[in-house]
Amino acid sequence: MLRVKNLSVYYDKAIALDNVSIDVEEGEAVCVLGANGAGKTTLLNAIFNVIPKKGKIFFNDIDITDLATHKIVKMGIVYVPDKRTIFNELSVYENLEISAWEIIKNKGKKHFVKNLDAVFEHFTNLEEKQSLKAGYLSGGEQQMLSIAQGLIRAPKMFVMDEPTAGLSPKLMNAVFDIVYFMKKQGITVLIVEQNVNKTLMATDRAYIMEVGKIKESGNSKDFLQSDSIKKAYLGG
C-alpha cells in the first residue's frame, strides 16, 4: 500500500535520513522504533512532503513523491504528527468538523454526524467536552483529540508519531486499544513509538532505525522475543 524507496533527507548539510526504504502492505500494522534522534519523525515528515527529500514514495502504486501535503492526505491517509493537530481557540466539536470538512462538503452533515458518533464511542471524554475550547483540554485529552480528528476522516491508512508520548498508563492503553480497533477495521497502520513492548505486541512488523538508517526489520513477534535486538537498539 505504501512504498518508500531510497529516501534521504538533509538538514543543511547533515544527513538525517540515509537511503531509507520501507513497505507497508494493505491491512498491516507496522511500527518504526529507534532511539531519540534516529530519524523517525524525519521519515514521516518526508513521506508527507512536510520537508524536502530525495527518493520515491508510492501510495497504492501512485507516485506521491512530489504531491503537496494536502493532496496526499486526500488519498485516504491520515498523519497524526508528534505536534498536536488541534486548533486551540475552537471548540472540540469544531476541531472535528474541520478535520472532516471534506466529508461534510462531499457527503453531507448526516454522514459527518454518523462518523462523529462512531468516533465518540472511543472518546467518551471528548463527547462530554464537545463545546469546550480545545486549548483548555488537558495534554492527554488534546492528544486524544488529535487522534480522533484523524479517525473521523475514515482513512484507509493511519500514520502516527509517538501517540502515547506524555500519556498516563491508562490513556496509553486507550491509544493501543484504538490501534487494535483500527487493525480490526482493516485500516493499515504505520506507527512510530518509544513504548517498545506494547508497540511490538500491537503490530505485525517492525523496522528499527539508528542514526538515519534502517538497521533491522522483521516480524514484531520475533523482535518481542529477541533480547539481543532489544538490548542493541532499544535500550533493553
Binding site: F48, V50, A68, T69, H70, V73, K74, V78, Y79, V80, P81, K83, R84, T85, I86, F87, N88, E89, L90, E94, E97, I98, S99, A100, W101, E102, I104, K105, Q149, R153
Partner: peptide
C-alpha cells in the same frame, strides 16, 4: 460557516490544516 472556520484553522495551526486536506 465551515469555510470561515477552515480559514481560521489555517491561521491557528497551518500544518494541521494542511494535514486535513486544506490547500493553505
Amino acid at each position: 460557516t465551515l469555510n470561515g472556520k477552515i480559514m481560521q484553522a489555517v491561521s491557528m495551526n497551518t500544518l494541521a490544516a494542511s494535514l486535513f486536506g486544506v490547500n493553505v
